[in-house]
Write a protein that binds this DNA or RNA. Sequence first.
DNA 1: ACAGTTAAAGAATGAACGTTCAAGAACAAT
DNA 2: ATTGTTCTTGAACGTTCATTCTTTAACTGT
Lengths: 124, 124
Amino acid sequence: MGRPREFNIESAIIAATRLFITDGYEGCSMDRLVQSTGIHRGSLYAAFGSKRGIFLECLRTTLTDTADPPSSSELLLVALGELAARDDEIRALCAQAIKARGENAAHELGIQLLARAGLNEGHV
Amino acid sequence: MGRPREFNIESAIIAATRLFITDGYEGCSMDRLVQSTGIHRGSLYAAFGSKRGIFLECLRTTLTDTADPPSSSELLLVALGELAARDDEIRALCAQAIKARGENAAHELGIQLLARAGLNEGHV
DNA sequence: ACAGTTAAAGAATGAACGTTCAAGAACAAT
DNA sequence: ATTGTTCTTGAACGTTCATTCTTTAACTGT
């Protein structure tokens, strides 16, 4: 029933995740999301409801699907830095992920924060 | 020569710093900066040149004036999370501050990141 | 063939953004 | 008193933002 969906929602999430990681949440516009996912505005809104909805789905997928913590930390970093303080649902997701990381979660996040900022060990 | 400046530039920096810390860089609009510093648009632009100029001055002041690292870490966190990767001048300032913090800079930043996100030890 | 339903497509919407500008006000120097 | 300079003030600018809406296309069931 109805016209079939032409885009793959999973690859859209992957593309959006990549963009959120490189540009941050506020730094990433819907225009860029439309452009980089290859999915049109209306379709994105029909599928996710809002920009926040897209991010939420990316975060959920990343945190549950990704086996090794380091690679899922990048989006977690964005969530913690820009969204968690003001968004209960996102904060809860973050809290859960951090608890799962155990003792040195803070240390690893700090390292990743520096790496993301372009401040790797030694070379300024 | 000329009309004397009526506002105190240092207290403007303090007010702006507070706002940047609570709202982040992108999350803090010029409207709110105008409102919370009590200085009018034109005057802010005359004094700092741009929104980035305001932030840069806040960061410089915070990093050099503040004796204890923890309290200056909050703005550093904002700089690292939103600006450093794309802004050479800000990245250089951050690099210097981090070098000065020594070995466990990353660990302390991670802790502060979690605190800022509202994820303090234990209570979710 | 024809409803009925769902997706694609992108123009349109209004609010919010950072920034600039023109007018007036307050001072020093002549 | 006049000129030159600097600051104040807030309206206005063009752009970009997230979101909505309308139209058209593609499919299923009758």
